[in-house]
């Protein structure tokens, strides 16, 4: 069994790497920041005695994605679980292209390469980390939200396609999690720890859950938010 973690410098991603490594699985941690990826791999080796390899990965290097998947398989063996954890919330400036390219195009591109790797073997699991922000466009983060929403939709279609080929695709819609992305935010809503997220994700993947919200109460919140008529919604400042 080997596990690929994409965007490993995210705390959520690192906790997921911990969960798989402590189960004795070989882990490939991939990130743009290869220095940090190395440190994370070292930690997995020391902490869990796991096989852990680090490598460089850029979500926007679309042309390199297929070769990247081959490299990972060569290093740690065929990929059984891949976690797409990278994301970019943008900084509210002129980063339209980057936000769409990282959260949507890059995510879809690497998932296609993973699908091509897993489908012929008739096994595997792709875990996509999406967001509640993708459930409805809101003025505060609709750029990021629309890319994540697109990713959620993409994962739906991919799940439908790969199900017949024995590959499971799981969508995780996260609410607030205590990471770099949210540090210092006044959320007003309970915030999950990255370790809690990782335990929920691994357990759900084992049960082959298709899609879920975490923390679970976000499902209720988003049901309400989605139900508000557009006539009313456009007047709100959310």
């Amino acid at each position: 069994m080997s596990v690929l973690i994409l965007g490993a410098t995210s705390r959520i991603a690192r906790e997921l790497a911990n969960r798989y490594a402590e189960r004795g699985q070989a882990v490939f941690v991939a990130a743009r920041d290869t220095d940090e990826a190395e440190r994370i791999a070292a930690d997995l080796r020391v902490r869990h005695g796991a096989q852990a390899v680090a490598g460089g990965f850029d979500a926007t290097d679309f042309d390199g994605h297929a070769a990247f998947v081959d490299d990972v398989a060569a290093a740690v063996g065929p990929i059984d679980v891949a976690v797409v954890a990278f994301g970019d919330m943008g900084d509210g400036g002129d980063d339209v292209r980057r936000v769409i390219e990282v959260n949507f195009t890059g995510a879809a591109s690497i998932c296609e390469a993973l699908a091509a790797h897993m489908a012929p073997r008739g096994t595997g699991c792709i875990i996509g980390i999406s967001s509640v922000a993708g459930d409805r466009g809101r003025q505060s983060n609709y750029l990021y939200g629309s890319a994540k929403g697109g990713f959620t939709l993409y994962l739906q279609g991919l799940r439908n396609r790969l199900f017949k080929q024995g590959v499971h695709v799981m969508t995780v819609k996260l609410g607030f999690v205590d990471t770099r992305m949210t540090f210092g935010m006044e959320t007003g809503i309970p915030i999950a720890s990255p370790a809690q997220v990782s335990r929920a994700v691994v357990a759900a993947a084992e049960r082959k859950v298709d899609a879920f919200y975490y923390p679970h109460f976000w499902r209720g919140i988003m049901t309400v938010i989605r139900a508000v008529p557009e006539k009313v919604f456009k007047r709100l400042s959310l």
Binding site: R11, R39, I40, A42, D43, V46, R47
Partner: peptide
């Protein structure tokens, strides 16, 4: 608190 990587351990000597 989040600078928390274990980088190297030598089980022969106990150096961490």
């Amino acid at each position: 608190r989040r600078l928390d990587r274990l980088l190297e351990f030598d089980p022969e000597t106990g150096w961490l």
